[in-house]
Amino acid sequence: MLEVRGLETAYGSIRAIKGIDLAVPEGRIVCIIGANGAGKTTLLKTISGLLRPAAGTVTFLGEDITALSPAQLVRRGIVLVPEGRAILSRMTVLENLEMGAYQRRDGRVREDIEATMERFPVLKERRNLAGGSLSGGEQQMLAIGRALLAKPNLLLLDEPSLGLAPLIVSRVFRIIREINREGMTVLLVEQNVRQALKVSDYAYVLETGKIVHEGPSPELLDDPKIKESYLGGRRP
């Protein structure tokens, strides 16, 4: 569904990602894991159009989307939930959800917003409160609910577990699995390697801007090298 070929992005003269190839097949959860500063966020920002690549191509459903803006990508069905969740803190929870459906012209937006609030009841309770008044976990629910209201084909998630309490983290991963079962293709970037590998079908390991390892997630979960570097040592 999504194909990335030889992608390079630079900040000034510093190349943050150096020739990345990856593929996200339809209906799957693909994750990119790696340490801080490996280039994960840069990669997602480039795919979603926030950053212009220095080289390489991004293809989505057979169409070259390398030079498109984020708004144009939303129209084509690619939505990013950025790191930090990007809640509009001065707008209400309901308005945040409405903004998720900004590009939709069909008449079903109202019903879909209702359905989103049924799925995340806390959003219904707080519908008229400012987005900025929600807790981190609530904001993550709002960010995911808002992204889904755009009716995307591909959801890009940047560190959805960042800064959340462990209980909320497992809730977020459960939601990711749930929306995937409903047919959503997901590209996930995570530092929570164990959870990311458990939830995903295929994984890429990013180190200093390059993919150093890839494979089906269950295999990576058992790989001694991955265990040592990312999962906190060997376990019985």
Partner: peptide
């Protein structure tokens, strides 16, 4: 509120 967020939500 945020140019980047608005753009990501599909606002031109």
């Amino acid at each position: 509120e945020s140019l980047e967020t608005a753009e990501l939500l599909g606002v031109d």
